[in-house]
Computed example of a mutant assay.
Amino acid sequence: MTVSVGTKVTGKVTGIKDFGAFVDIGNGQSGLVHISQISNDYVKDIHDKLSVGDIVTAVVVGDNHGKIALSIKQAQEPSASHHNKSQNHYHKPAPKKAPSEGFDDLLADFMKESQDRLSSLKKNTEGKRGGRGGRRG
C-alpha cells in the first residue's frame, strides 16, 4: 500500500517516546504521530492518551523519503471545543446589535468596550506587580 498525504490510515502503536508515538501502518511501513498531533487538547504526558498496542486512525500529513508523519487529531471529527479554541475566556461575546445601527454607533460601542477591557487589564496588572506604594529605599 502506498500512502500519500491526506490518506487516512489505521495502525497499531508500537512505541512511545516523549515527543510522539510510532505507529505500524502495515506493509512494513511505520509513521510518527508527533505529540502535538495526538489531540485537539493539550497533551502534557503522551501516556495519558496512548499506550503501546492501541489501534489508532490517523491522516498522513507528510512523507519525507519514507519518514511518514501522521496526525490523529486531523482524522477525528472536529469537536465543538476545537471551534471555540480562538475565543479568549477573558472577553464576553459582544451582544447582537440591531442592524439599523450606523457605523458611528458601532464604533462608539467598540471604543467603550475597548476602554472597559483596557482598564480592567490595567487593574489586574497593577495588582500582580504590587501596585502603587511599593517599598522605597
Rank of each mutant, 00 (worst) to 15 (best):
V33C: 03
D105W: 05
D105E: 15
V3Y: 08
A98W: 10
Q115I: 12
A80C: 05
V59D: 03
V56I: 12
L107D: 06
K17T: 10
K17C: 01
G130Y: 02
N40Y: 09
A94L: 11
S39N: 13
S4V: 08
A94E: 14
K123A: 15
F110G: 10
R132A: 08
Q74K: 15
K92L: 09
R129V: 14
D41S: 13
F110E: 09
H83Y: 11
P93W: 05
V56K: 02
A108T: 07
D63T: 01
V61S: 07
G26S: 15
H65N: 14
K8W: 03
G20I: 06
A69Q: 08
A98F: 11
D48L: 00
L121Y: 10
V9N: 04
V3M: 05
T7W: 00
K67G: 01
L107C: 06
D18Y: 01
G133W: 00
G15K: 15
Q76A: 13
N124L: 14
V60T: 03
K44T: 13
A21L: 06
K67Y: 04
R132P: 00
L32R: 03
Q87E: 02
L118H: 10
I68K: 03
H34S: 11
E77K: 09
V13R: 10
F19G: 02
P93V: 08
H91A: 13
S36H: 14
L107R: 13
K73M: 07
T125I: 15
R132Y: 02
K97E: 14
K122S: 01
S36T: 15
V23G: 04
K49I: 04
